[in-house]
Design a protein around this nucleic acid. Sequence first.
RNA 1: GGGAGCUUAGCUCAGCUGGUUCAGAGCACCUGCCUUACAAGCAGGGGGUCACUGGUUCGAACCCAGUAGCUCCCA
Length: 875
Amino acid sequence: MSIAKTYNPKEAEDKWYSYWMENGFFRSIPDEREPYTIVMPPPNVTGVLHMGHMLNNTIQDVLIRRARMQGKNACWVPGTDHASIATEAKVVAMLKEKGINKKELTREQFLEYAWEWKEKYGGIILKQLEKLGASCDWDRTRFTMEPDLSDAVIDTFIRLYREGYIYRGVRMVNWDPQGRTALSDEEVIRREVNQTLYYVRYAVTGNADGAPSYLTIATTRPETIMADTAICINPNDPRYTHLKGKTARVPLINREIPIIEDEYVEMEFGTGCLKVTPAHDLNDYELGQKHNLEVIDILNDDGTLNEKAEILVGEDRFKARKAVAKLLEEAGQLEKTEPYQSQVGFSERTDAAIEPKLSMQWFCRMQELAKPALEYVLNGDVKLIPDKFINTYRHWMENIKDWTISRQLWWGQRIPAWYNAQNDWVVAKTEVEAVSLFQAEGKSADGIRQEDDVLDTWFSSGLWPLSVFDGTRHPDNADVQYYYPTNDLVTAPEILFFWVARMIIFGHEYTGKPPFKNVYLTGIVRDKLGRKMSKSLGNSPDPIELMEQYGTDGVRVGMLLSSPAGNDLMFDVAYCEQGRNFANKIWNAFRLVKGWEIADIPATSAQQEAARWFGNRFNQALHEIEGHFAAYRISDALMATYKLVWDDFCAWYLELAKPAYQQPIARETFETAKTFFASVLRLIHPFMPFISEELWHDELFGVRAEGDCCIVAEYPQAGEYDEKLLTDFVALQQVISEIRNLRNTKQLSPKTALPLAIHATSDIDFARYAESIQKMATISEITFAVQKPSGVASFLVGKDEFYVDVAQNIDVEAERERISKEITYLEGFLKSVNAKLSNERFVQNAKPEVVANERNKKADAEAKIKLLEGSLASL
RNA sequence: GGGAGCUUAGCUCAGCUGGUUCAGAGCACCUGCCUUACAAGCAGGGGGUCACUGGUUCGAACCCAGUAGCUCCCA
């Protein structure tokens, strides 16, 4: 097999991914094992992989691979979402390029184009996930608009309608004039925008002599004055008492409107007079309802003015704004303008400014449905990770509003409502059923037609954890019984309400259970300047290119290293580089072991001690790693793994076990090293699936049986470990490090062996480690002394003294200074300890073990000072 | 305007129920090494008034109040 000096990921990646697929390792079918299930947040079917997907799916893959290795029946369900607005917008744009206007097409014709588009671009993102190594059960791939899932959506609509949750009504909705559809509140992004505040004069009719014949109103939307149906003043406003009961005339069109009074008007804002435009502003609409005002809607669906505006008919709303301002100025009715900043809503999908618009829509009543969904999170049945999101979730669920579920689009599930010629309507799955429903109500079904609108995409994604297992239609089927509720959901906090909350709601509605136990909320991937990565900014690296450059394992490690739970991550390719380097480190460690020549000789003391220590250290680290996983601290789990492999395994274990130059290795040590290596491979597999699988199959391990793969090997289980042995070894490492440092500061070559004398008073058995010290610190011989020899450098580890004969290199002055410094430090330390111990209140109030600990510290410090003073004297 | 959160080394972040002179990790940086596993490396090292001000306590990065700056969510 390969002995290349650097790891070449590309070959391994293609090879092993297809091998896993061929062997069905990703496949899951219900059996007697414990299930572990994740449903993938379905990406937009026509989308491409971005950094957010990479992060999200890497985490899911780590969780699923680990569960699989732990012997659970791991099932990761992939799929895509039809994303109605986004996809329809793309198709419309594509048609436009071809010179086809959507309006000229029938619904059927349009959908044909849309499906064609979906077929062409639909699979891209899933292919990209394969490159990432995602071990999903591809046989279970679902699409929210495939027949079964659409069926589930329609059934759910009918079910909720029959239960009284769904209704139809005229409401002020967020209208996207570009997408020509209503949007839910969550799809509207508010941004601070620089605007102009126009001060417009309205003529007042029937005013008494002497009073001004006009009033002034401040508005950011002069183009809507033609839709004004009242002027409103605050009844407590002394400036406007003369206006009470009067009427005013709308400028330019001279329509007469009443002046009404309502405390809603803020006297401080603008002029204190408010124009009331019920058709084009939510607050005005409510005011209009209260005061029974007429509603005049002057806008078409595409944002142009209609004939009710009387002037500028057909003009776009923003052009009309400027035109009206100009006309007002010419008419002398524009008093002044001033710059003004305010929040404006924009469509998440098309970025068009949202127009509040009255329209007939379908709604889902949410208040009652939200209650159990909130309860699950509050009582911990559904855990949000990190839990700081519980508050946000609660706030939203407690203030939830009805959900606008209809969208004026064609791409999506068509609402199962049917109208007759008289516009009466019924809700039914089929036309035949609808006809009989009409008849049952004694109404004619003549001219029957289906509702044109489709359902919000989130309505179908809300069913996702159930519908992928066909759980809405066949609640008793084996899959849903086995896999539902799923275990973990990994998604972005931005869609906690859009999606997560609705899945919980629907899950409860159908099964009385929440759809998952844990929701891991990842952060947003930002660039190192903290800006969100986006196509328009061009600050996002191409994930595929990254994987080409650093290897998939490297990129996976890079993503996770920079990703503490729940925090946004400041991505930098340097992390991927670190990941690549890590893979390369493992590769080279493997080359070392592979290169050993085996002989039937006894293991050296260093080799024996190394094996004894690493076995314990591995178990200790495994406990830490388990703890991190249990708390979903994936990046900490990875970092602990990284340090275990790089520092403990490579820098300490292998260095100790390594035979002398051109010497063979004891068979026993070789076998142990191989066993450790195999454990390391199993441990890193969830993070680095490719290199671990590649090495797993190396001939070093002999011929692997069919199906003996790292992906399904048993995940290492944390065993017992000897704490004393591990702390002793830490002291040993300190000794070695001190000697190396000594050599470094004295500018001695690392090759010259130095003699070491040890004066140990602790219970650490240094004789046992003598050979290890010699090997790691290049020591010629070790003696055990009682007294400090003269003319040597010394250092202290714990209570034990070490003397290194650095020959003539001893600089007495420097040594004196170093020791004095250490004494000063210890004296300071001792002082602070004594201060505590002589403080009666401390001794009385502090916990006994804390006090005892302070006494130990005191004794230790005193002993050390004594030793150091001895050293100083002997210089 | 309402709500949530953040501020610890040059960067990204740990620091659990206050208790070692508690300030830690990775990366970056500095010094010396091409020591036949790895320069994508090895060995060693430096670096922080824990945003600021006050309080509680024997003791505060940690608890409380206020100030400043930043982020997110909702209106």
